[in-house]
């Protein structure tokens, strides 16, 4: 088991785990539109499938917010 932080919350996951798999696991809404940072670095969308999650990783899913008027 590994401990990671997702959007500020602790989460236990089983490794190995790719970013793509974490997105599926966490049922992230509209995954084709989410921006992802791991340990403060943006991950390019093409690399979601090949990016491994490691123990202690801090992951942020960032969402578009388009309103304002």
């Amino acid at each position: 088991m590994a401990q990671i932080t997702v959007n500020g919350n602790n989460q236990e996951v089983t490794l190995p785990l790719t970013l793509d798999q974490l997105i599926t696991l966490n049922q992230v809404a509209n995954p084709e539109m989410v921006s992802v940072q791991i340990n403060d670095n943006f991950i390019e969308r093409e690399k979601f499938g090949s990016t491994q999650i490691y123990d202690g990783d801090i992951i942020d899913f960032l969402y578009f917010m388009g309103g304002g008027r």
């Binding site: 509209n30 084709e32 539109m33 921006s35 943006f42 969308r45 960032l62 578009f64 388009g66 309103g67 304002g68 008027r69």
Partner: peptide
């Protein structure tokens, strides 16, 4: 830097469609 490009048309609701 955060969001590369606009989301596909009509995929993300604006305030009038989603409420606020």
């Amino acid at each position: 830097c955060i969001f590369n490009a606009p989301p596909p048309k009509d995929l993300v609701p604006t305030c009038s469609q989603a409420g606020v």
